[in-house]
Structure formats: structure tokens, C-alpha cells
Design a protein around this nucleic acid. Structure first.
Lengths: 156, 156
DNA sequence: GTTGAAAGAGCATAGTT
DNA sequence: AACTATGCTCTTTCAAC
């Protein structure tokens, strides 16, 4: 089982998901503990894999990735086929997320590209992966909001 | 139009999406420029909104959010209804992403919860939003991979 | 774009309770 | 687990080039 988090841990996680570049000192002030204590907790959260990393978030339009789409991907059954698909999808820089979903025998992908042309190119390459049987693409017209996973997400 | 990024900018963005907590000094070594230059570029990228923030990434299981699902949400047309839906969805901590998609007259949501029970509770609350007409939920069985948006994402 | 300097802030490692 | 105390690194802001 995963380690239990207390209120201080959750405060740290809340603060670091909101601003991942703030100093340990600022963090210590936020939680009301000394700097070494907070540092130790932070390091433990990193060691235990609760915090998996820190990432700069980019504006999609500024990096030429304004067009988002979801792609349902059907492909031949079998572990070998799945391995091929996984490996090829990993090489597609426009494919940001890949999920195996229930209900339909397929993957769902989140893709970002500069526009519909680049999206079409990516889809062409995906359809060229041998085990792939077909795709069904849903274009995102507008992002209403996106937020990072936080310590208060799961519990209803 | 958005400002054009050069190779140095892209290297900085690549490094900061991979490790958002590294020091400016380390960044400077990575790009092969002096510290003040890199600092200035980083600040400009932040000011211009290319970098929208820095966030700690959390392990879903460790924060009790192991179950992911996509929800197609149909609701009554009209701006007023949309405003109500947006506001209520923003209050749902399990709802991490909301997109307006083409093809079907609805939203697509990405939801994370501790399990199917908490997911069902969230869906109950979403269905209780007045303009909402129905939902269609697809459970994620496995996350194949997820990666942050980077400077090389968009261009095919 | 560069180097160099100097003050302050932050970090890491102790040793203690 | 928490604290204080310490030396060291990094940041930040100058200047001058």
C-alpha cells in the first residue's frame, strides 16, 4: 500500500502543484514549519514517488500546438501488436497521452499539433503502423479548462 | 501573432519541461550560454506567456486518484446554460480537464477519482447540474503513457 | 551577447531536543 | 519528527565590455 499522507504533506503538495518552482523557504512559511523539516518531507515525497517530477507548463499556441484532438485507435489484438503500437506511438511527438480504455477494443490518444494539416500528417503516420485497423478523431474546438492533478483530486 | 522562438529558446523549454526545478545555472550549462543571458530569456518566456507555470507532477495512486475516465457531457444549448455548466464543473475537484469538442454537441471531460465509487459520486453531481442532459463515461483501464507538452510537440 | 563582483537568499548538513 | 546553527551554492543585480 502507498504511504499515508498527513495534512502537512497535502499542504506541501497543494503548494507545489500550484507553483513548482517556489523555494523550500517559501514552502516552509506556507506550512508553518522549519525549513529542514519541510525539505525532509519534500525529499521523502520525491523518494516515495508521490511527486514524480516538476515540469514547466507551456502555452500550446506559443509552441505551435494550438490544435488538440482525441483519437480512438483500433488495432489487432495480441501483445506483440500492442508492443509495436506502443513503441511507434512513443515516437510520435504530437501524441501526448495514450490510454487503454474499456468498452471498445482500442486506445484513446490525446494529440496536439500546429493545425489540422500537421494533425492529418500525424494521423497518416499512425494509420501506417502495421497492426492499426482504424482511427476515429474528435477535434477539440475549445479548452474550457485544464488543471494539474492535486492532492484533493481523488476523494469525492 | 506569437513571438518566434529560436533554438536556444527551444532548448530552454525542452530542459524546463523535463525538469522544471533545475537552477538557472544548470540551464546555462545545458544551453551553452552565460547565466545572465539564460535568465533573461527565461524571464522573457515567462513574461510572454510561453511558460504558463511550473507544477509538481503527482503519482495518481499516491494521492488516491488511481481511477481515470473520460466523460462525454451533453447539455442544453445556449450561453447561459454553458456558463452554469462551466462554473459547476470548475467546483468539481475530480474534473481535471474540460474540452468543447466538434462532432457531437457536448463537452469531453477527463476525470480522476479514488475509485469507481468516487467516480460514480462525481458523475451523480455532474448529472444534477440543471442544463445537463446526459453523460457517457469511458473508463481508463491503463495509462500507456503521458508526457508534458514540449517545444517539439506541434510541428509534425 | 559577454565577464566579474558583491550582497542577499536559499540550500544542505550537521548536531540537539 | 521537529528545531537551531553552520558553511556553501545559487540567485540577483550591478557594473563594464
Amino acid at each position: 500500500m502507498t504511504r499515508q499522507l498527513d495534512d502537512v504533506d497535502r499542504t506541501i503538495l497543494r503548494a507545489m502543484t500550484a507553483d513548482g518552482r517556489q523555494t523550500v523557504r517559501a514552502l516552509a512559511r506556507a506550512v508553518g514549519l522549519s525549513e529542514p523539516s519541510v525539505r525532509e518531507r519534500l525529499q521523502r515525497l520525491e523518494r516515495d514517488g508521490v511527486i514524480t517530477g516538476y515540469h514547466a507548463a507551456l502555452d500550446p499556441a506559443s509552441v505551435d500546438a494550438a490544435t488538440a484532438a482525441f483519437v480512438a485507435l483500433r488495432f489487432e489484438p495480441g501483445e506483440a501488436a500492442k508492443a509495436v503500437v506502443n513503441e511507434r506511438l512513443a515516437r510520435e511527438t504530437c501524441v501526448l497521452e495514450v490510454y487503454e480504455v474499456a468498452g471498445e477494443d482500442c486506445y484513446w490518444l490525446k494529440v496536439r499539433a500546429s493545425g489540422t494539416d500537421a494533425l492529418a500528417d500525424t494521423l497518416d503516420r499512425i494509420r501506417a503502423i502495421p497492426p492499426v485497423r482504424g482511427t476515429s478523431t474528435t477535434i477539440v474546438l475549445r479548452t474550457v479548462f485544464e488543471r494539474p492533478l492535486g492532492p484533493d483530486t481523488g476523494p469525492a
